[in-house]
Amino acid sequence: MRDLLSINDLTKDDALEILDTAVQLSALSDSSNRKFPTLRGRTVVNLFFEDSTRTRISFEAAAKRLSADVINFSAKGSSVSKGESLKDTALTLQAMGADAVIIRHGSSGAPAQLARKRWIDGAVINAGDGTHEHPTQALLDAFTIRRHLKKDQGDLAGLKIAVVGDVLHSRVARSNVLLLQKLGATVVLVAPPTLLPVGVEHWGAQVSFAIDDVIAECDAVMMLRVQKERMEDLFFPSEREYARNFGLNAARIAEMKESAIVMHPGPMNRGLEITAEGADSKRSVIVEQVANGVSVRMAVLYLLIGGATSRDLAAQIGDQS
């Protein structure tokens, strides 16, 4: 594994290796607020073309706990039309010798372009691209589900997980559908038809238009953020109607299985896709997801640049010649 661009880059074994590594790292991190020397001398760049404080600080904490040097590069609105191009930004980072570039970009496929065109030698980690994917979010979600429902062991076979809300525009949903199914879980997508992509039938997930039809049989319910602007684009008539039909409220939580958990990638729109009772209920693992995010991202960084990288190998070949 050289880059992490999409869940499709991972085999099931790769995914389990990341989760198992994260389990060890989270145990070590729990025992004390420790720092590992593992990535000492490695440079990790947070290249964020979109604001996302929580994802950025999660990666930053992960990299720092592994002793990497972290450079935060915020390049909002950068594109051909406005300011520096992605390519020139990448070449700048390349000149700085980045071992890993963590990229968040509003355009689907931007991380894949960085990696494919090899504007950067270092590992490229997708921290969310447009409406495409957000693989580390899916990994931390799978980690959280496995911790609660599988005691940190094995895959997710036998579990049923609902992903509720704006599937059409959600990179979190795309990565989760791929990963959770890869790990053996059954995924059911719950959304109004306007917020499901044409072609969703090829995803292998079940589709439902009614949260009440599925909530009682799910082991985990993952609520997606719904942006209020979507209303203006005619995806749903009003916030009230959306919340009534697809929001997670106390009555729906009461229908859930004893062991079932409530998840949300954040940031939440309380009152729209989730009520305060939903967000703060005993079933909610939303805060835990944040802590697990650091462990999972440490695992990803360790596995991508903790061992010999292509840059190291190139340097060795260079030494020999």
Partner: peptide, 18 residues
């Protein structure tokens, strides 16, 4: 819109052109 709307656009997260 960015590309043909269908299986591939759904997968790639590019806005569909029906």
């Amino acid at each position: 819109a960015q590309m043909n709307e269908g299986e591939v656009s759904a997968r790639l997260g590019l806005k569909g052109w029906p």
